[in-house]
Design a protein around this nucleic acid. Structure first.
Lengths: 193, 193
DNA sequence: GTCTATATGGCGATAGAC
DNA sequence: GTCTATCGCCATATAGAC
């Protein structure tokens, strides 16, 4: 295969992924048809199959792309400063990044497909959750040396993520609303004091 | 309609619901066919349509049944005793009840269908989550009068539910495992002290 | 490799007898 | 109301020309 052909091949594959990603995010796996993806990507249906084998192959490629590129949480650099301010900044960033239409759709998708595509949540945990837990745990260990910082980091991240899932994905805003600030404030108070 | 006919009607409807429930739980909405439900319930496909109109009607009936009867969380009687023991008991009960194959499948289902069937998560919040939050909030208000007990209750329940979702539904056991006891112990310490 | 056209099967929903 | 048999559609996947 010449360099030019390979380049064209990659371009086509990326063109397909770019077209398929919003379709899977918006409609989920079962409700997204290969016809629809072909149309959205601007290629013929057969081209999808030559590049990705079948629908599952295309979906798995999409999941890897999402976990590795699109939905990286927070930053990877270590946290610095006073605990109260550091935790507040981290909470704000995390809430802002997760409370985004595409990210919420991503979470819905990996939960919905956690049985039939078990690799998808694993990619999510490895590339998105684990790094966030790691930098928070390492920071806490420098400031709360006698406590179980790994468990506390889980509680911190878990309470925030659950808040978003409940309010946004489960439509909790309409049933059991609560101000985000109260969750953040009390969570920080519990941990710092 | 005579009493006998009505009784037969109800029996048939319940027979259908009983057959359809495990199918929807195990395979989700899109992957469950009306043929499969008819077979599982031991009735003809036409009978499904006579009683519930269409697939959506049957699914909504299933959701109501699950939220109202099958997945009631914890108990509704007020909590009593010392905070540390009360919180520990509540955590254990909540974890045990949520970490059940059917309950996990129920959570997966309402998240997966939260867009196309937005009533399903609302039923879940009203019948399952809200009562649990209520009794915990009322208990905390008797023992921690100066604190924002509603927010703390959300943090408590949220951290536990998120732990189960991450470990069980997202297969976190294999990627980022942690002992449940550490989550419970540290959560209680944060709140009580 | 990429296209147009097609094969094949399963789906939700219905018709008509009883 | 309940059954058997069937319709019409859309899904995934493939065939064959270029």
């Amino acid at each position: 295969m010449s360099k030019t052909q390979k380049q064209q091949h990659l371009d086509k594959a990326e063109q397909i992924l770019a077209g398929a990603l919003p379709e899977f995010l918006q409609h989920g796996y079962a409700r997204t048809s290969m016809d629809r993806i072909a149309s959205a990507a601007g290629v013929s249906k057969q081209t999808l199959y030559t590049h990705f084998g079948d629908k599952d192959g295309l979906f798995n490629a999409i999941l890897k792309q999402m976990a590795r590129e699109k939905f990286q949480l927070v930053c990877s650099k270590p946290l610095e400063g006073e605990p109260e301010q550091v935790l507040r900044d981290l909470a704000q960033r995390l809430l802002k990044e997760v409370n985004d239409p595409d990210h919420l759709a991503f979470v819905r998708l990996i939960v919905a497909e956690s049985v039939n595509h078990p690799e998808s949540p694993k990619l999510f945990l490895i590339h998105v959750v684990q790094p966030a837990l790691k930098i928070l745990t390492e920071y806490l260990e420098q400031h709360q040396k006698l406590k179980d910082c790994e468990a506390i980091a889980r509680i911190f991240v878990g309470a925030l993520i659950h808040h978003i899932i409940t309010q946004e994905i489960l439509h909790g805003k309409e049933i059991i609303p609560i101000e985000e600030e109260r969750i953040v404030d009390n969570l920080i108070k519990l941990i710092v004091h």
